[in-house]
Structure formats: C-alpha cells, structure tokens
Amino acid sequence: MLVLTRHVHQSIVIGHDVVVTVLEVRGDQVRLGITAPKEIQVHREEVFAALTAANRQAATSATSSSELEALKALKSPAPPDEQRPGP
C-alpha cells in the first residue's frame, strides 16, 4: 500500500483526473472531498461491498416460468409495514 502524508486542504491525484482532498480532521474522523469524472462512481467501501454482494446474489436468480408465475401472483400486495426502513 502506498502511504502519503497530507495536511488539511492538500490533495492527492489518482490517475489523470481523480482528486482527493483532505477537508477536515476531527478526532478519529477525516472528511474527504473527491472530484472524479462522472463515469467513475465513488462509494464508501462497505456500501460498495453490500452492492457487490447483492448483485452477485441477484445474478443467481431463478428465471423459469414457475418463478415468474409465483411473482405475478404476488403483484400489488398491500404495503407490508415491516418492509419499511426504520426512522
């Protein structure tokens, strides 16, 4: 791993056009500003891992006609309260 030391308001450049700037250091938290081309998505690592896992799982979906019929039978149920995220 490459290790660099930066002060607040200093940046690093990744490739030609990704710039990461240290905005603020407070206790054990660091705020970073990132500019990148729009085709480069920037994620928190744990969120990216969650999406990766969900997509890999989804790619194993069963797609035979029996699953389709089961889903169609379910269409438009009343909104189940417990699906909602908490406040």
Binding site: A54, N55, A58, T60, S61, A62, S66, E67, A70, A73
Partner: peptide
Amino acid sequence: VILTVHSTA
C-alpha cells in the same frame, strides 16, 4: 429495482 428471485416468492 433488481430482484433476487428464489424458488418461492
């Protein structure tokens, strides 16, 4: 939204 479809709904 992407679904993960299993044998039962």
